[in-house]
Structure formats: structure tokens, C-alpha cells
Design a protein around this nucleic acid. Structure first.
Lengths: 253, 253
DNA sequence: CGAGTGTTTGAAGACATTCAAAAAGGGTGG
DNA sequence: CCACCCTTTTTGAATGTCTTCAAACACTCG
């Protein structure tokens, strides 16, 4: 019998992911970009995508490389980050099933403005920029959906800027945990488990802090019973307590 | 004869601005959104816009209000900001001639995610969200341009996030000054004058700091001869020196 | 079991904030 | 043109949050 695993994360969130054609079809027809297209169009779109598997930790692309494709997460989680020259990283986002990324920069500069790393083993659907551009002009509603998606990303980025500008570390961490819990969380009776390996270094890179500080804050949250944590995983036990931490910080002063 | 003005800023950047129909036509045909449309289409577009003047300091809209229009700056500068509940503000961007803002959020939530304040007396062209939506579906190339513009805004926001995450205050200020000089600057023999009234409080709200700290940093930059400053204005004298300040901070450590 | 990575914790110190108060700039109305 | 007022800018001193550096500990994998 297998030894009890200590991480509560699902295996397939950690190990190599692969795409069944069934999954692939489901992802594409549910993707915000293509939802609403007539079935024949969806079939045509389906033909333009390739599915690729990436082992955990590998890069899908690096900041500065010429843009080659637009990506759609089918399975697993993908981390978007920027490197600073000094070597420390800034994590911009953590994406999961149904999220898209990468290719839209092609419309502009033609270079990826950030790197994408497989946070888990994952499967992504890719479409070449040329094909996607073609889609955009063929189906205007796709362009509108894309616009919608990017506007939403922009607002999220502005929220991060506000948090970095006005909130102390603890509140920023609380806020990020809430966001991740809502987007990647899996509800259990003992709390919301964030379904992705997430080191405190990663967390630090999301809130503009350091691993040491994050550890201190997280420990304090754990002592207060707001979260459970372990190596590379976090479970939110008291969502509303975290929410008030983030809010009170804003009202303070 | 008129007394020598102490501010080097242009009068019409401070006082009420108005839109000549000539200016209006020029702005619209040069706007990234509509550039490339055939002339009849541009004329049609022209008919959908209204031009509105705003005195300096007045709000074009407030965060949270329902989105009513998309805006295009014809003259003057406009400040986009978010309020924190504690009352301090976060300045997201400073826009000038040709920049657009506001209405794209309509596609999503229907509420403005930030406020817009006339930094100078200014003239803006507005189009209702309904009309703009109509434009988007009528002319697919407009949707593509809009997409392009938002992607560019998103990348700018990510750059701000990186700066806030990795750079000390001085470097962030240097970076913002460079950006403003490039976008709002007017080249003179004695440096690049940022053509918009800009208080140190505003600057502080752009780099997530305080007026007191900004004053100290700016004074230091002035002593080193990198900038000239006065009440509500800044001139960049040594662009490359500022650039190295921002760069060295990244390479340090 | 040993190596490597992730987490915890302490102590010292830096950078920036906060609070406060004074000085300077610019507009306004007499 | 001057006196007044309000806002912006400047500067000092004290404080604090967070970082840095270091070392110990824990967990996982080969």
C-alpha cells in the first residue's frame, strides 16, 4: 500500500499532464474567446490548435523571445513572470484551466513581455499568431471577446498596483490568497485548498516581498487559524478573516 | 507688458481648453483606433463624437459610476486614478493628446474602474458606449486597434508592477520622469519640460510614496543637475543620467 | 541516507514613512 | 501693485516596517 502523501494537492496537478481529445474539445468550446461561435466555426478553430504537454518547471517561452503562439491552458497551472536583471522575479499571474496568455503581444511588439513557466505538469493548446490573427479578422466576435479578456487583465493589473501602493505586506498576502483561492481553489470541508504547488518564494514574488517575510506572515496567519500550510501548499480555512485583513488595512489610518 | 511668468508651462496647458472643429478632425483621423479607415468611414465616426471641455481639476467621471462613454484626449492632460478608502490616491496614468480611456470597461463590468480628472483645462472627444460598440462590430479593424491599445496598456501596467516590486523609490521616480518626459515632454535647449502641471503629491501617487519623500529625492536630483523643478513643474535636464539611475538600481545587488 | 530545496526564526540595519512646522510660490481681491 | 491666503515644497527628527544576512530545520527524491 502506498505511503500516505503529505501534500494535499492532487497528483495530476503536480505530475505530467496530457490532453485527451475530449478535454481539448471541451476547453475550446468553453473558452471565452470562442464561446458563442457556431459549431462549424468551432470545428474549424479546433483544427488550428495543437496541444502540447509540458513537465512541471519547464518554460513555455521566455521574456523577450519573438512571439510564436497564443496559449490556452487545458490542464494544470502556468506561472507568468518577469525577471529583474538582479535575478529576482516578479510573478504577474498564475493561470489555470481556460485561461489564455502569450500571443496577444504579437499584435504589438512581437516579443513576449514576460516568461511562462509550467507550475505543474500541464497541457496547453496553442495556435500560431498567424492563424490567430486570421481568426480575429474572420470572426469579429472573437476579437471582441479578446478585447474583453485583455480589459479584464488590465483591471486586475491596476488592482495589483493599488495593492502594492497602499497595503502593507500582510494585507497584500491576504488579498493574493483570496484571489488564488477563488480562482484555483478547491472547496473541502476543512477549507479552500489552492490547487497548485506554490512556494513562499512564489508568493513573495507576487506581493513584492521576500521569502523570509512571507514565512513570518503566513506563520502568523496559521497561528490565528486562518490558513493551513505545508511545503508548497496553502489552504484557506477562514476566508472572511482574510478578507477583513485586506479591508481593514485599507480603512486604517 | 505682462509680468514674467514663473512657471515655464504653457498657458493653454493650464487654463480652459476648447476644441476647434479643425483640431477635432485632426485628432480623430490620427487616433490609433481609426487611422486606416477610409475617409467616408472617418466622416461617419466623426458624427458620433461630441466634444466637451473641462476646466482643470474637474472630474470627467468617478470610479464606480456606470460607464457612459469612451473618451479621447484632444487637448490638455487627464489623470487616471484610484482612491483608497483611507483617502490617499493611486495615480495610474497621465494621458495627453491622442490617448483614449474610459469606455472599454463597458464591455465588461459596466462601471469605471478608476476616476478621471482634468489635470489641465482640457478638451475631450466622447462617444457613447452604444455607438462605440456599434463601431466595433461595423469596422473590425477598429476592434483590432482597440485590442492593440489595451494590450499596450496592459504591458505598461506590468512594467509599473515590476518597478514597484523591485526598484527603490529614487529609481521609480527616475523611471516615471523619463516616461513622462517621453510622452508629455517638450524639448527645449535647456532640457525636456513635462508639459503638465504635476505636483509632488501626484508624483508620489504614481510611485507609491509620499510627498515628503518625493521632495527629498527630487531635491537630490536637482542638486545633481539632473532636473530643474518648481511649483508643479519639472524639467528633465539630463535624460541619460536619470536612465542610469533606473538601470543601475536593477543591476545592483 | 545524503543532497537539494523549501521553510522557519533571530538579530541587525536600511530605507522610507510619519508627524510637524516652516518657507516659498502663485492667485485673488482690494 | 500690494497684502493676504491657500497650496505646495522643504526639512528635521523619531519611528517602524520590512529587508538582509545567517543559520537551523524539515521535507522529498534519488
Amino acid at each position: 500500500m502506498r505511503r500516505k502523501r503529505t501534500t494535499p494537492l492532487k497528483d495530476d496537478q503536480i505530475n505530467l499532464g496530457s490532453c485527451s481529445t475530449e478535454l481539448r474539445a471541451r476547453i475550446l468550446s468553453n473558452a471565452p474567446y470562442f464561446r458563442g461561435l457556431p459549431q462549424p466555426a468551432i470545428d474549424a478553430v479546433n483544427g488550428l490548435f495543437r496541444s502540447v504537454s509540458h513537465p512541471a518547471g519547464t518554460a513555455l517561452y521566455h521574456e523577450g523571445e519573438p512571439v510564436q503562439a497564443l496559449f490556452l491552458v487545458a490542464h494544470g497551472t502556468v506561472k507568468l513572470l518577469q525577471h529583474s536583471v538582479a535575478g529576482d522575479k516578479v510573478v504577474l499571474d498564475l493561470l489555470s484551466q481556460g485561461d489564455s496568455f502569450g500571443g496577444l503581444s504579437a499584435l504589438r511588439q512581437g516579443r513576449y513581455p514576460h516568461s511562462a513557466i509550467a507550475q505543474t505538469g500541464c497541457c496547453v493548446l496553442t495556435i500560431t499568431t498567424a492563424d490567430f490573427r486570421h481568426l480575429l479578422s474572420t470572426y469579429p466576435e472573437v476579437a471582441l471577446s479578446a478585447l474583453d479578456g485583455v480589459v479584464s487583465d488590465l483591471e486586475a493589473a491596476h488592482d495589483v498596483i493599488r495593492a502594492l501602493s497602499t497595503l502593507p505586506v500582510e494585507a497584500r498576502i491576504a488579498q493574493v490568497l483570496l484571489d488564488l483561492a477563488d480562482r484555483l481553489g478547491e472547496v473541502h470541508e476543512d477549507g479552500i485548498l489552492i490547487q497548485s504547488p506554490l512556494s513562499q518564494r512564489d508568493l513573495a514574488a507576487m506581493v513584492a516581498s521576500t521569502a523570509a517575510t512571507v514565512s513570518r506572515v503566513i506563520s502568523s496567519l496559521r497561528r490565528r487559524g486562518y490558513v493551513d500550510t505545508g511545503r508548497q501548499w496553502i489552504r484557506v480555512r477562514d476566508r472572511s478573516a482574510l478578507a477583513s485583513l485586506a479591508d481593514e488595512a485599507e480603512h486604517a489610518r
